[in-house]
Amino acid sequence: MARQLLITGCNRGIGRVAVGLFAEEGYDIICCIRGENPEFSKYAAELMRANHVKIEMIYCDMMDENAIMSAFKPLLEERRHIDVLINNAGIAAGSLLQMTPMSQLKEVFQVNFFSAVLVTQIVSRLMMRQRSGSIINMGSVAGLDNFSGYTSYGSSKAAVMSFTKIIARELAPYGIRVNAIAPGLTDTNMAKQMEAKAYDEMVSRTDMKRLGKPEEIANAMLFLASDRASFITGRIIRVDGGM
């Protein structure tokens, strides 16, 4: 039986590249995205054909807790086997504290943190029954290095990484590993949203003086998902070109 991956937020950026990479490795994949997307469906169909894997879609808005519950409930009812969960859904927001509306803070935390907690609550139940699994959360160097202007995004990612370490301890007795990846600035649409000055500063901070490529982050996901990482849990893996 092929290994089963469930990944959220994967119709573009790092998540999309990860879907391609995991498909190439023979994983069957459940993609959780916000809504129907013909272009992504076509991409998934091509991956299925090329790699002889199954890819199915779950649609839900990570802003909506009830929608998440409704979308994921069938997985529980069907007792689906899931080997790997990647909580990749996320949104970016950059602003100084005094320019950060509470609405933005709540939105960022809902998508980046609360939705990941809820999805993990559901999927980890299945993994606990299996007594195996690997959960990979998307952190960020912004949640580790505390850059100015990252009240919303940086705080939400810090929460994700703290959550990762806590549940790694809770779930280890069930054979479930939990880790997070903390990417540096990566060449996605999210990076293009940054102010030019902040973007330049971020690139200049890296020893390698460049953005990360989505596939470089996805490769770390693939490693953590695999049995090659079988003794790694509760860790935050920086993939940042040296910072």
């Binding site: 529980l76 009812e77 609550q121 559901i122 139940r125 606990m128 029954r129």
Partner: peptide, 14 residues
């Protein structure tokens, strides 16, 4: 909870 889920073939919600 795990024992009851096995006994009754159910999955309980959080």
């Amino acid at each position: 909870v795990a024992a009851l889920e096995d006994a009754f073939n159910i999955m309980m919600e959080t």
